[in-house]
């Protein structure tokens, strides 16, 4: 039983990381007022560019993660141009990004011969001395780099959003673009920046799926995880730490499902597969009973609204 518990908990960070990074990326993007639902497309682009970078470079998974984030960021320029400059409906543009991501990755993977090629991927990083500790060792100190960096990344992003002028302006653009504009903040510049920075994080999540977990590329391998990340953002009310908690909850359940089956525990499997969604529902009910949100973490007021300078309302 102890082994079961350790194996389960030790696997949670790996399952939680893609959800957490994708949700954080979406929060950054949406804090600027751009409704971003194309995470599924971003994740696929990130996942394929990660595998592609490893195959082209002949290794270097860390570099591949950065390349994947950069490529996804560039890919999101399409979305930024559509929504910020051309003011296309953001839901429609998001759907276009999902389908473009699916088609493009499938095409490139086939043409480049990256489909179904096993890669060495991201290895576990042991901490000398600490990794051999009983219980704590496997859980905390036998993870890969992305899992170790998960909390620092969150700390950094939250700091920028809440404690810097850049973060203040970004939130202002998402809450009241007209006022921000009047105060001399370039709405379009901040929205471009937020969309691209957010996409980099979602792309990192996708690359982690292919480089860190699956260690190969197959078409459509994000398997709906981008959609779960969107649900996490709404459920966390655009609050990064709550999104991380939600990701850990989902990761915990995803790590538990096959383990419960593998020990042959006699519970109906459809019930087990339902648990992530049941948990979401329960937490949402709990959250809704917890009074009013702090204004800073509620939904961005101008979410989904294109900004037109000096437009009369």
């Amino acid at each position: 039983m102890t082994d079961f518990f350790i194996n389960w908990v030790a696997n949670i960070p790996g399952f939680a990381a893609p959800f957490a990074l994708a949700a954080l990326g979406l929060i950054v993007s949406e804090k600027s007022g751009v409704l971003t639902l194309g995470a599924e497309g971003y994740m696929l682009v990130g996942a394929l560019s990660g595998v592609g970078a490893i195959l082209l470079l002949g290794g270097y998974p860390m570099a591949a993660l950065l390349i994947a984030a950069a490529v996804t960021s560039l890919f999101s320029l399409i979305f930024a141009v559509m929504t910020v400059t051309l003011r296309v409906n953001q839901v429609i543009a998001s759907l276009a990004i999902i389908f473009l991501g699916q088609g493009l990755t499938s095409l490139i993977a086939t043409r480049a011969g990256w489909l179904n090629v096993p890669i060495a991927g991201l290895g576990k990083l042991n901490v000398p001395g600490l990794s051999d500790l009983p219980v704590v060792g496997p859980i905390l100190f036998q993870q890969d780099l992305v899992c170790y960096l998960l909390v620092p990344i969150f700390v950094g992003v939250v700091y920028v959003l809440n404690r810097t002028v850049i973060g203040l302006k970004l939130r202002a653009v998402g809450d009241g673009p007209d006022a921000a504009d009047a105060a001399g903040v370039s709405v379009n510049l901040f929205r471009y920046g937020a969309v691209m920075a957010g996409a980099a994080l979602v792309g990192l999540a996708g690359a982690y799926l292919s480089i860190g977990i699956a260690k190969l590329w197959v078409d459509g391998m994000s398997g709906g995880r981008g959609l779960i990340a969107i649900a996490l953002v709404i459920f966390a009310r655009w609050h990064p730490w709550r999104a991380l908690a939600g990701a850990v909850l989902f990761g915990g359940i995803e790590a538990l499902i096959p383990r419960v089956a593998a020990i042959g525990l006699q519970v109906p499997q459809y019930f087990v597969m339902m648990t992530p969604y049941l948990a979401t529902l329960a937490v949402m009910v709990w959250a809704s009973t917890r009074g009013r949100e702090r204004a800073a973490f509620a939904m961005p007021q101008a979410l989904g609204q294109p900004h037109t300078r000096e437009e009369r309302h």
Binding site: V218, G220, P258
Partner: peptide, 11 residues
């Protein structure tokens, strides 16, 4: 066709 879930199950 989900290599992430398949890997988790095998592990």
């Amino acid at each position: 066709n989900d290599p992430v879930k398949e890997r988790a199950a095998a592990q």
